[in-house]
């Protein structure tokens, strides 16, 4: 029978997993080392992604392969480079130009997306009919009441007095149920991740290692 030890990748993944779990005992050097490596690898990963998934296919390749057809790409290229002028004290203010265009554009996108993609569809979805069978009517009433009372709760422009006060209170109850549901989902997601990590450590690292060392 061939004895198969876990590979370098499995050893590394298991080491990092156990380093992070060591925090459960208390804050220690191994945990902080893994944490620092995680931060470094994350930054490196996003730099790599920027080159591999954005700059290479959308900027450099089109420019170098067909400059005449893609010369307008010099504009974002120049704007990107302008951002780095903030490291030149005398010209740092010019970097705000690129930033202004970037923020301005996404502000415009945000306005359209929020109003057209969120407010209108959600408002439309709340305008439910009340001329429906009793079973469905209860659900529709719960939704209409919930949306209105939550919006009343979020209306901070005037003090919540008179009939607005109990309405806002009902809104808070709705919010608490919703936060509870979100909390439940978050917990389930994290436990699922934990199961995944334990499955990896046991089945892909510890078990092959034990089998390779002790046989069986």
């Amino acid at each position: 029978m061939q004895l198969q030890l876990p590979g370098i990748g499995e050893w590394m993944a298991a080491f990092f997993t156990l380093c992070i779990f060591s925090f459960l005992y208390r804050d220690n050097v191994l945990y902080r080392l893994a944490e620092s490596i995680f931060a470094g690898v994350s930054f490196g990963y996003y730099i790599g992604l920027a080159r591999l998934n954005t700059l290479e296919p959308n900027l450099f390749r089109p420019l170098f392969s067909d400059f005449a057809g893609h010369w307008p790409l010099l504009i974002p290229f120049a704007l990107g480079l302008i951002l780095y002028l903030r490291y030149v004290p005398k010209a740092a203010w010019i970097s705000n130009w690129a930033l202004a265009i970037y923020i301005g554009y996404y502000i415009g996108v945000n306005l359209i997306q929020r109003l057209h993609g969120e407010v209108l569809p959600q408002a439309k979805g709340t305008m439910l009919s009340l001329q429906v069978p009793p079973g469905q009517l209860l659900g529709n009433l719960v939704i209409i009441l919930g949306v209105l009372t939550v919006l009343i709760y979020f209306f901070f422009s005037s003090p919540q007095r008179g009939p607005l006060k109990p309405a806002a209170r009902i809104g808070v109850y709705y919010l608490m149920i919703s936060f509870g549901a979100s909390f439940g989902y978050t917990v389930m997601g994290r436990i699922s991740l934990l199961i995944g990590r334990l499955t990896f450590v046991i089945h892909e690292w510890a078990r092959p290692l034990v089998r390779a060392v002790f046989g069986g």
Partner: peptide, 21 residues
């Protein structure tokens, strides 16, 4: 999930979207 949670999420989305707009 279908009713109280949907209602609260809708309220949050509409409120946040109006604020962002």
């Amino acid at each position: 999930m279908q009713f109280p949670n949907t209602a609260a999420q809708r309220g949050i989305i509409i409120g946040a979207a109006l604020g962002a707009a």
